[in-house]
Design a protein around this nucleic acid. Structure first.
Lengths: 345, 345
DNA sequence: CTGAAAGCGCTTACAG
DNA sequence: CTGAAAGCGCTTACAG
């Protein structure tokens, strides 16, 4: 109970004394060492271990073998469901290889990121970095790292290993869905350019829509100032009220939270979804089903991404260098709900 | 870079050799030991530390001093925003006391919970347990723990220290809001009885509504089978279609996700919110603003709860036993949105 | 003010 | 098959 004086945890020595063998023998037995131990001794040791409820101290083991059996993970925002799923995937893969996963959130702040990096690095064998790579400071800190790391949902400079989803395929899925419904004027709500996934999706959007419209300007891109609903709402308003321009009949949002705000703002402006404007969002979440109008989304394989990142990192601890870029083969899925329809005639 | 051979990390010994002093002196300087060191020596050591970019190895330090400077946290579900906020609060408090916070998710599964407990316990100085206490196995495991722990958002058996929000006040807030609007027939969507917060809220609901209605049965309680939207929807349907009974004019949901499902199901059944039925949910989240009808909620001070739990735990590491029950003084807030209105005449 | 020694709890060659 | 020794990188009395 909190505050109560703790009993002493039994040590290897306690076991060895009770079993009347040297500690090294106990260690060997517990680590399944190849070198054989007499069956009787073996059993005696196991009995004592059982009796004392002995668990090796992982800290001491770490110091001795130079491995912590721990993986670290840096994430930008715990409240974003995408990361929750990546964590789940990474945690499973770690557990399967008998590693503990620990993580820290960094926000969108370079100082916090660097501090968390410093704190985590000496305690783990490898690091999964899903946080946005900020300025050079973070890149330098990472490249000075003495342990392997892998980027997740990010691409780094040079040949830094990274695991990403197929953002381009996801964007194409969304645009083709809208085009298939007959839309030709599709707007895009993008976000801060420094976030690499956002930049890629914007490029993919431009590429996918370029043949759709007679004029490039029919498929405008606006940048939301942040990744939250309010910024999405404001961006939507800009798209819907461009002066002298025809209003887009559909909008593709780079983030689910943008879509939440965008849909709300559209309704507030008297623009109906999907009758007047269709909306598709990148990234899926259960809430999409429960909005004013259930939201059509592109679902990325976040759990699979987290799992793969952990697996590759674990592999690199065993000396198998990971490929510099892994695009998860599990393709994005389009979840068609009620926010998309053919444009009004 | 992942896979690249690591440079050797400088050790205390590297510093002491370069500075031509014994390692113990370096250790003293770095730990700000009271015993004085000659100013010149002091400076020389700091210079070398700087030059080598030396950082003490926390693992070795842990083994030596018997403290890891790490706190652990067990949470049931990363995807529940409430825990995200508790983590944030706990992380801040930990960082302020120079501790790292590591956590693991347990799901709603006793086996997983016990495994995570075993993995975490030897690596941390204390534990924050926000996971649902399952059967006796988990309680036993906790009571056998050799480190202090504190429950968060849970109450344990006996005098186990715990930090909770004022659930009763939150329930009262919701019920009084509805009563003030004129509602007399208020239903409650509760959940699995083994979750202690849910059980408490149910009791508080019964207490708060008992004087409201002529017949107890006018304020019925139904249990959702799980804590998800679908279960909430089914529970709502049961409330709306009780045979031979008048339908409640308002419903209080024990969880936000229940409210999501409940609202959707009401609409699907042709019951309008709030015209035909008002809905209030326990727990708040940004999404409440973006639903078909923006949802009135009770907001609990989750970040403050997480922070307080960490603070008390840190205190107990310093020998200040925490009180057995801490109800956070920051009161719940009622966020009135559009899902509540006076009952139809 | 400084250094030598022992110890934290493990693992791992190396001898026997 | 078993044991003694050294070492992982620190800290902390204890002498001088």
């Amino acid at each position: 109970m909190a505050g109560r004086a703790a009993r002493r945890r039994p040590t290897l020595r306690d076991v060895s004394e009770l079993a009347k063998v040297d500690a090294s023998i106990v260690s060997r037995v517990l680590n399944g060492e190849a070198r054989r131990v007499a069956p009787a001794t073996h059993q005696r040791i196991l009995d004592v271990v059982e009796q004392l409820n002995y668990e090796p101290n992982p800290i001491a083991r770490s110091l001795s073998v130079g491995r912590t059996q721990t993986l670290g993970m840096l994430i930008p925002d715990l409240r974003n469901l995408a990361y929750g799923n990546m964590i789940l995937g990474a945690e499973q893969a770690s557990a399967e290889s008998d590693h503990v996963l620990i993580f820290a959130s960094t926000g969108d702040d370079e100082t916090v990121m660097n501090r968390q990096l410093e704190r985590l690095a000496p305690r783990v064998d490898g690091l999964i970095v899903a946080s946005v790579l900020q300025g050079g400071g973070t890149r330098d800190a990472l490249s000075r790292l003495r342990i392997p790391f892998i980027l997740l949902n990010r691409r780094g400079p040079g040949r830094w290993p990274a695991v990403v989803g197929d953002d381009e395929a996801g964007v194409t899925l969304a645009v083709e869905h809208l085009a298939g419904l007959g839309h030709r004027r599709i707007g895009h709500i993008s976000g801060p350019a420094r976030v690499d996934t956002i930049a890629r999706r914007r490029k993919a959007f431009v590429a996918a829509t370029t043949h759709l419209a007679p004029a490039r300007d029919d498929c405008p891109v606006v940048r939301a100032a942040a990744i939250d609903a309010e910024a999405g709402a404001d961006a939507m308003e800009r798209l819907l009220t461009r002066r002298g321009r025809r209003r887009p009949t559909a909008v593709f949002c780079v983030a689910l939270v943008h879509a939440l705000g965008a849909m709300r703002r559209a309704l507030d402006l008297g623009v109906r979804v999907p009758e007047d404007v269709s909306i598709v969002a990148f990234d899926d979440a259960p809430v999409a089903d429960y909005l004013a109008t259930a939201l059509t989304t592109v679902r990325m394989p976040h759990a699979a991404m987290g799992r793969r990142a952990a697996e590759l990192l674990l592999g690199s601890l065993d000396g198998e260098p990971p490929p510099s870029l892994t695009v998860i083969d599990h393709p994005p899925e389009l979840i068609v709900r009620n926010s998309t329809a053919a444009p009004a005639a």
